[in-house]
Amino acid sequence: MRNKFLLITLSAFLLLTQAAFAFVNPDEQLADAALESRARVISKDIRCPVCEGQTIDESNADLARDLRILIRERLTAGDSDEEVVQYLRLRYGDAILMNPRLNKTTALLWFGPFAVFALGGAATFAMLRKAQKS
Protein backbone atom coordinates (compact mmCIF):
# COMPACT_ATOMS: atom_id res chain seq x y z
CA MET A 1 0.00 0.00 0.00
CA ARG A 2 2.72 2.38 1.01
CA ASN A 3 4.75 1.41 -2.03
CA LYS A 4 1.84 2.07 -4.32
CA PHE A 5 1.39 5.52 -2.84
CA LEU A 6 5.08 6.24 -3.32
CA LEU A 7 4.90 5.09 -6.91
CA ILE A 8 1.96 7.35 -7.69
CA THR A 9 3.59 10.34 -6.01
CA LEU A 10 6.81 9.75 -7.91
CA SER A 11 5.01 9.38 -11.24
CA ALA A 12 3.06 12.55 -10.63
CA PHE A 13 6.26 14.36 -9.74
CA LEU A 14 7.97 13.12 -12.89
CA LEU A 15 5.03 14.18 -15.03
CA LEU A 16 5.10 17.64 -13.47
CA THR A 17 8.81 18.11 -14.09
CA GLN A 18 8.33 16.87 -17.65
CA ALA A 19 5.75 19.57 -18.19
CA ALA A 20 8.04 22.16 -16.63
CA PHE A 21 10.81 21.23 -19.07
CA ALA A 22 8.94 22.58 -22.08
CA PHE A 23 9.94 26.21 -22.31
CA VAL A 24 7.77 27.27 -25.21
CA ASN A 25 6.25 30.51 -24.00
CA PRO A 26 2.62 31.27 -24.77
CA ASP A 27 3.64 34.35 -26.77
CA GLU A 28 5.78 32.23 -29.10
CA GLN A 29 3.02 29.82 -30.00
CA LEU A 30 1.34 29.95 -33.38
CA ALA A 31 -2.41 30.27 -33.65
CA ASP A 32 -2.43 27.57 -36.33
CA ALA A 33 -2.40 24.32 -34.32
CA ALA A 34 -1.04 22.22 -37.20
CA LEU A 35 1.93 24.56 -37.74
CA GLU A 36 2.52 24.79 -34.00
CA SER A 37 2.69 21.01 -33.62
CA ARG A 38 5.11 20.77 -36.57
CA ALA A 39 7.26 23.45 -34.92
CA ARG A 40 7.26 21.44 -31.68
CA VAL A 41 8.33 18.25 -33.48
CA ILE A 42 11.21 20.06 -35.22
CA SER A 43 12.27 21.83 -32.01
CA LYS A 44 12.52 18.50 -30.18
CA ASP A 45 15.25 17.38 -32.58
CA ILE A 46 17.26 20.62 -32.63
CA ARG A 47 20.09 20.90 -30.14
CA CYS A 48 20.48 24.20 -28.36
CA PRO A 49 23.95 25.38 -29.51
CA VAL A 50 24.76 27.07 -26.20
CA CYS A 51 23.44 24.49 -23.74
CA GLU A 52 24.81 21.05 -22.98
CA GLY A 53 22.57 18.24 -24.17
CA GLN A 54 19.30 20.16 -24.26
CA THR A 55 16.96 20.62 -27.18
CA ILE A 56 15.76 24.10 -28.02
CA ASP A 57 12.30 22.86 -27.03
CA GLU A 58 13.36 22.41 -23.40
CA SER A 59 15.88 25.23 -23.01
CA ASN A 60 15.13 28.71 -21.76
CA ALA A 61 18.34 30.12 -23.25
CA ASP A 62 17.96 33.30 -25.25
CA LEU A 63 19.30 31.68 -28.42
CA ALA A 64 16.99 28.66 -28.02
CA ARG A 65 14.03 31.02 -27.83
CA ASP A 66 15.19 32.88 -30.94
CA LEU A 67 15.61 29.58 -32.79
CA ARG A 68 12.10 28.47 -31.78
CA ILE A 69 10.70 31.74 -33.09
CA LEU A 70 12.70 31.40 -36.31
CA ILE A 71 11.37 27.87 -36.92
CA ARG A 72 7.82 29.15 -36.51
CA GLU A 73 8.46 32.07 -38.85
CA ARG A 74 9.84 29.83 -41.56
CA LEU A 75 6.96 27.36 -41.23
CA THR A 76 4.48 30.22 -41.43
CA ALA A 77 6.29 31.47 -44.55
CA GLY A 78 5.60 28.09 -46.14
CA ASP A 79 8.85 26.14 -45.61
CA SER A 80 8.58 22.35 -45.35
CA ASP A 81 9.88 20.66 -42.19
CA GLU A 82 12.88 19.41 -44.15
CA GLU A 83 13.66 22.90 -45.46
CA VAL A 84 13.65 24.31 -41.92
CA VAL A 85 16.02 21.59 -40.72
CA GLN A 86 18.26 22.13 -43.76
CA TYR A 87 18.40 25.85 -43.03
CA LEU A 88 19.72 25.16 -39.53
CA ARG A 89 22.08 22.38 -40.62
CA LEU A 90 23.66 24.65 -43.20
CA ARG A 91 24.44 27.19 -40.49
CA TYR A 92 25.22 25.11 -37.43
CA GLY A 93 26.36 21.82 -38.96
CA ASP A 94 25.21 18.30 -38.13
CA ALA A 95 25.81 18.97 -34.44
CA ILE A 96 22.55 20.93 -34.33
CA LEU A 97 20.59 17.68 -34.76
CA MET A 98 19.85 15.63 -31.63
CA ASN A 99 19.86 12.51 -33.85
CA PRO A 100 22.72 12.99 -36.29
CA ARG A 101 21.83 11.56 -39.70
CA LEU A 102 23.70 8.53 -40.91
CA ASN A 103 26.35 9.55 -43.43
CA LYS A 104 30.02 8.95 -44.12
CA THR A 105 31.29 11.14 -41.28
CA THR A 106 28.78 9.91 -38.70
CA ALA A 107 29.07 6.19 -39.57
CA LEU A 108 31.71 5.71 -36.86
CA LEU A 109 29.38 7.33 -34.34
CA TRP A 110 26.55 4.94 -35.20
CA PHE A 111 28.44 1.69 -35.67
CA GLY A 112 31.64 2.30 -33.67
CA PRO A 113 30.23 1.07 -30.34
CA PHE A 114 28.94 -2.15 -31.93
CA ALA A 115 32.31 -2.74 -33.61
CA VAL A 116 34.11 -2.21 -30.28
CA PHE A 117 31.63 -4.53 -28.55
CA ALA A 118 32.10 -7.24 -31.18
CA LEU A 119 35.88 -6.89 -31.03
CA GLY A 120 35.94 -7.04 -27.23
CA GLY A 121 33.52 -9.97 -27.24
CA ALA A 122 35.65 -11.89 -29.72
CA ALA A 123 38.81 -11.23 -27.71
CA THR A 124 37.16 -12.27 -24.44
CA PHE A 125 35.77 -15.40 -26.08
CA ALA A 126 39.19 -16.34 -27.48
CA MET A 127 40.88 -15.75 -24.13
CA LEU A 128 38.32 -17.78 -22.20
CA ARG A 129 38.65 -20.66 -24.61
CA LYS A 130 42.40 -20.59 -24.33
CA ALA A 131 42.21 -20.54 -20.53
CA GLN A 132 39.80 -23.49 -20.57
CA LYS A 133 42.13 -25.53 -22.78
CA SER A 134 45.26 -25.08 -20.68
Binding site: D66, R91, Y92
Partner: peptide
Protein backbone atom coordinates in the same frame (compact mmCIF):
# COMPACT_ATOMS: atom_id res chain seq x y z
CA UNK B 1 18.39 43.98 -32.37
CA UNK B 2 16.32 40.81 -32.62
CA UNK B 3 19.20 38.38 -33.24
CA UNK B 4 17.95 37.40 -36.72
CA UNK B 5 21.28 38.10 -38.44
CA UNK B 6 23.02 36.26 -35.60
CA UNK B 7 21.16 33.03 -36.46
CA UNK B 8 21.30 33.63 -40.21
CA UNK B 9 25.09 33.77 -39.98
CA UNK B 10 25.21 30.64 -37.80
CA UNK B 11 26.49 32.22 -34.59
CA UNK B 12 26.25 30.76 -31.14
CA UNK B 13 27.82 33.61 -29.17
Amino acid sequence: DNGKAFIDWGLSG
